[in-house]
Design a protein around this nucleic acid. Structure first.
Lengths: 143, 143
DNA sequence: TATTGTTATACTCTATAACTATA
DNA sequence: TATAGTTATAGAGTATAACAATA
């Protein structure tokens, strides 16, 4: 019997494949894209701030920024008032790409529910929220 | 505005966290568990067969089997008729664990839809199937 | 000649610990 | 003394290419 969980896991796999493929074509990975996404939202940030935002170690951020720098998505700029720190700054290319990806995200949002009536979409969203709440409760109970 | 896609991505993240945490407690990773899962379904298999089933390179399978062997989940047995090949075989421990995880999977399936009526669950499953089909079509169109 | 698995090499993501420069 | 970032080291997952043993 195929359950809700089975279906969700399948969607998870498919979404992951779709995202990974799209990013690969742009010379990005999921981890680097997460950083870039935070960066676009936060504006130029120290690696320390990015480590907190992404919940990874500072050392990990060093590696991700290394990769993004080499591929032209960010630059390391001196911090104006703290000579220990660095401001990771998105390049024009990165800003353009993130904007385009936001558009594609919106398109995918629409394409995904093609074939469902507006009422069905609303019910689907409500059900997803219930499932999300259940999951979060389970995770909080024994992590 | 929070879309269906946003909600699905959130569920995806939460499910991933839940699975990763549960596996970590058992000394497993997601990649190794995928192999183990296939192995339990296929029965003792050559690494070649596993590479095909998992859609990874034979070299990758060597690494995964190395890890599973060291942690006591599989053994490498000689192939009865082909001296080039190896039969990767799940240990008793692996079989027991996979059976238990199957049970936990079933429990999670139920806990996930707590608060939804049977009719809502059916509608939810149908909507998930529509979304899955849409996703698969999009992936087939330009991969 | 083709297949099975391994060694060799490389890249990415991730972590901890020790160290440097600066606050 | 505390903080920001790096070097050093390590493990996991992934890939390609070359090679040995066997078919």
């Amino acid at each position: 019997m195929t359950t809700v969980l089975d279906r969700l896991l399948l969607v998870t796999t498919l979404l992951g494949d779709d995202m990974t493929g799209a990013l690969e074509r742009e010379g990005l990975t999921t981890a680097r894209t997460h950083l870039l996404w935070q960066l676009v939202m936060l504006g130029p940030s120290t690696q320390q701030a990015l480590a907190v935002a992404l919940d990874v170690t500072p050392r990990n951020v060093t590696g991700l920024v290394d990769g993004l720098e080499q591929t032209g998505f960010v630059t390391r700029e001196p911090h104006p008032s703290d000579r220990r720190a660095i401001l990771v700054t998105p390049t024009e290319r990165a800003a353009t790409l993130m904007a385009r990806m936001q558009g594609e995200h919106a398109e995918l949002s629409i394409a995904l529910v093609e074939g469902l009536s507006p009422r069905e979409v609303v019910a689907f969203e409500a059900a997803l929220d219930v499932v999300t709440a259940n999951l979060q409760r389970l995770l909080a109970e024994q992590p």
